[in-house]
């Protein structure tokens, strides 16, 4: 039986982070979920819009929400944390302010009921796993020490998102445990990686990413696990911009949570897009410790 789920991939998943899309689709397919894209979706505008124009920063996500509800979607899976944040924050702001909602509906010239709810990738996976046991689907336990990195926008602002504990979230850690990995306790789970400065201030991204990588390695992690394309590209593509890294720091790979789960479910590396990373993903097969 296949289950259908609304899906907003966002631009990164169609471009530089296509392996997040590939691995998400592969895992969902394995779990019997069909992802249905919001018809003719547009970019959410990300940081650029809300840095420059408030009305636009609400209108771009509003068009997406309106299209989703027009297609009858009750929930929309939004894997990119930045898109997720823009969609949730817009929906919240418009729900709190009727007059503003009317103005934005007027700008986009669409009906806006706000009844399609954006969910992040962890919530989408949870939904797909309802009634199933992830543990029982694992064919190749992911026997590594992993550092789960949540970044900013998956947990903040907690007042609006109401997802996990803002200072020490555990949802990704628990999911990694269920596929056989050993999540480490570390200090940089929710620190910022520099997000939108990837191109315009690469120096600042390097400065913010260095302690994240260093702490993960120091505490014994063999891979970083992320759920956001911008975190992934800052930690992976921008690794070469970080100066003075040790051998281990230069080589620790950054996997999307969907790639990590996909490996455990026995999905082919290529179908998970592991060959697309700049920091090579060389995780040798290993028996579960103590098994």
């Amino acid at each position: 039986m296949t289950m259908k789920m609304g899906f907003y991939p966002g631009c990164s998943l169609k471009g530089s982070s296509r392996e997040f899309n590939e691995s998400l689709c592969a895992v969902m397919d394995k779990l019997g979920v069909e992802l249905e894209e919001v018809p003719d979706w547009n970019c959410c505008g990300a940081t650029a819009a809300h840095n420059l124009n408030h009305a636009l920063s609400l209108s771009l996500p509003a068009r997406i929400l309106a299209l989703a509800e027009g297609a009858g979607m009750q929930e929309i899976a939004v894997p990119c944390s930045a898109c997720y944040s823009r969609l949730v924050m817009t929906r919240h702001e418009l729900q709190e302010n009727e007059a503003l909602k009317a103005e934005i509906a007027d700008i986009i010239e669409m009906d806006l009921a706000l009844n399609a709810v954006p969910i992040n990738v962890i919530q989408a996976l949870d939904r797909a796993l309802e009634g199933a046991s992830l543990e029982s689907l694992v064919v190749a336990p992911l026997a590594y020490k992993v550092a789960c990195y949540y970044g900013c926008l998956m947990v903040r602002p907690p007042k609006v998102l109401r997802f996990d504990q803002p200072e020490d979230p555990m949802t990704m850690d628990r999911m990694m445990e269920r596929v056989g990995a050993e999540p480490i306790d570390w200090a940089f789970k929710v620190e910022c990686c520099g997000a939108g400065f990837s191109v315009s201030r690469t120096d600042l991204v390097a400065k913010l990413c260095k302690p994240i990588v260093t702490d993960a390695v120091k505490r014994g992690a063999e891979a970083l696990i992320v759920a956001c394309p911008m975190c992934q590209s800052n930690l992976d593509m921008r690794r070469c911009a970080i100066k003075g890294m040790s051998e281990a720091e230069a080589h620790i790979p950054v996997l999307y949570i969907t790639q990590a789960i996909g490996l455990a479910l026995g999905i082919d590396r290529k179908d998970l897009g592991l060959q697309r990373h700049l920091v090579k993903v060389a995780l040798p097969r290993r028996a579960v410790v103590g098994a």
Partner: peptide, 22 residues
């Protein structure tokens, strides 16, 4: 300047394509 230029270039792409064209 660079930061603002980046945001503007980003929005240009969305205005013309609807999505980000990297």
């Amino acid at each position: 300047r660079d930061i603002i230029a980046f945001h503007k270039s980003f929005l240009d792409s969305i205005r013309t394509c609807g999505r980000l064209y990297e």
